[in-house]
Design a protein around this nucleic acid. Structure first.
Lengths: 338, 338
DNA sequence: CGAGGCGATGTGAACGCTAACATATGACGC
DNA sequence: GCGTCATATGTTAGCGTTCACATCGCCTCG
């Protein structure tokens, strides 16, 4: 920015003076009121253009007592799911006429989440979207729900809370059932960390599918969503020859499992089948291409914004049905050989 | 939010009444002025606590004529690099006392970038950080630079523009030189798409290292950063037996190349060596573990915020030295066999 | 031809805060 | 004991909007 070049930004009054009307008429034009004569409107529009006028959102927010902002809290912003979610919420918000305040929390814990929510509240957001379904947030929600509208993005929401979600449990059932259909009986699970709702739901889906098929749960190892933890889990699983299939709670861990299996000399999928969760863009181009469960983060974000705007409009507490994930069959899982 | 429960949010005047002081004294307390007696301060603080008072940022911004906001434009928000950058900018901004407005642009083109910048300007950001180094933005920059402070995140910035960056060219030289040292003479390059500065710089680094070693450039294929495009490039490369090494412009494409090589029966690294760029968290757990070039996105974000805040404070145009990337040796590249 | 009404525009106040200045209170020196 | 000064606090105005209402023409109709 060149110093001294620009004085104060022009205000409505400046535009009004230039167009020879009152500031209120400018306001009407800017807000699309139809009570302005065509030629007057044109004069105003021309003045706006000439001066490079921009409506001051702070002044507007002050007098209307509405910020026009929605906040999204999300963690692990470097990962595919959260990143996609953030982008889709942002886009849907724009379309709905809201500004989206993105609040990434690199490492989730109760303190940092609380701090992030405080910041969002300081920003006067009209609703908070909770893009991270972790147990530690459920208590927090109760506290802020009297202050601001809240939408949880959650596959197993507490009673009476506004929420949207993807059916994690159903996705896990899809994956496990597929493995069962392939003839596998001992299916290990590399779970996400304790405390994460999605991890719990995926684990329950695995368990439920097994139960329905009268199969015993295979070994279960808890990871932390990272490929490193998947690798460590895989190394352990590789030592157990009875395991012929692994369901990993996300694609990163699945990929770690596959590497560990490779290193142990067990072929995927000939010796051990592996299924992941998420369908990250790279999943299709791993070796072998990863069979996984796809979640539609884009729709999730749109839905969340929709529910939030409705909540702001009429306070309704609406819980649309969970979105259904989809099994994407590639070649990391195959019929049980022996 | 429970309807009817909360009336209007308390203002300074409410706090002042409760504490038995004037609103100005409340303002002083809130802003940490030391011209307030200890016991008065305590009374005010107590009133703030009791009423749950929050300072209204809009009113403050209106009167101070400063929004306290920095905007970050970034694309491909689902990818590791941009996601990490966004998070680190956000964090650094908080620390520096600025609110960060994150503006993800899913698919970059001149129109959407322009729209996003307009939105940022409407939000009255005091500086715009351009987190996407694409040619199409360079013209845009010239237009807005008179309106707002701009910081480009760019490894080869135009003259006189404030910027920070990571030395992409040096990273590519590192990768290529490593391959050369391993005895490879025909090194292919899977480049990023035309128009992306980083892609250009990496390609130039590859070319420069080759030139210095008196080696002829191997085949060159342009991808689009995706693993799919890497796969397609890899399939092509696999047909050329003279190629014994590939330098891919990012990890996703590298992973696609590896799969294509596998499918063609060419082993990595025994037959063909592959080096990527970025060091995404999964890179270390691919099979084989990917040798790649690590960029420090976290430091990049911090640096960008630092330069932006300085620019706002005194208008200085500072271009700190490029950050240096680092070669991470794993096992997807090996000494040339024959 | 004047009352009534409607469409287009203007006026004044208020939103919650900070900046600038004004005032009160007490300590101190002569 | 009174001016002087520093320290603590209060008062007023104004930031750029929108809202509620006032005004001004002009047309319609009995």
């Amino acid at each position: 920015m060149v110093r001294g070049e620009s004085k104060n930004a022009p205000s409505m009054a400046d535009v009004a003076a230039r167009a020879g009307v009152s500031h209120q008429t400018v306001s009407r034009v800017v807000n699309g009121s139809d009570a302005v004569r065509g030629d007057t409107r044109d004069r105003v529009l021309a003045a706006i253009e000439e001066l490079g006028y921009r409506r001051n959102k702070s002044a507007r927010a002050l007098v209307t007592r509405r910020s026009g902002r929605l906040g999204l809290l999300y963690s692990q912003p470097h990962l595919y799911g959260p990143g996609t979610l953030a982008a889709s919420v942002h886009q849907a918000g724009q379309r709905a006429g809201y500004d989206i305040v993105l609040s990434p929390v690199p490492h989730l814990d109760a303190t940092s989440a609380e701090g992030a929510i405080e910041a969002l509240l300081d920003d006067a957001v009209e609703a908070v979207l909770l893009g991270v379904s972790h147990q530690s947030l459920e208590d927090l929600v109760a506290q802020i729900t009297s202050t601001v509208e809240v939408v949880m993005i959650h596959s197993d929401p507490p009673e009476g809370v506004r929420s949207v979600g993807i059916d994690q449990r159903a996705g896990a059932v899809l994956a496990t059932q597929y493995l069962l259909d392939l003839g596998h009986r001992t299916i290990a699970h590399v779970a996400g960390p304790v405390g994460w709702i999605d991890a719990r739901q995926r684990r329950e889906g695995w368990l439920a599918a097994l139960r329905d098929a009268d199969a015993q749960p295979g070994p279960e190892i808890f990871g932390d969503w990272s490929s490193r933890s998947g690798y460590e889990a895989g190394a352990q699983i590789a030592r157990d020859p009875s395991v012929t299939a692994v369901f990993a709670a996300n694609d990163s861990m699945a990929l770690g499992v596959i590497r560990a299996l490779h290193e142990a000399g067990r072929r995927v999928p000939q010796d051990v089948s592996v299924v992941g969760f998420d369908d990250v863009p790279d999943a299709a181009y791993l070796w072998p291409p990863l069979t996984t469960v796809r979640q539609d983060f884009a729709s999730l974000g749109e839905l969340a914004v929709e529910v939030a705007t409705k909540a702001i409009a009429d306070g309704s507490v609406e819980v649309p049905p969970l979105l259904q994930p989809e099994l994407v069959v590639r070649s990391s899982a195959a019929r049980r050989s022996s």
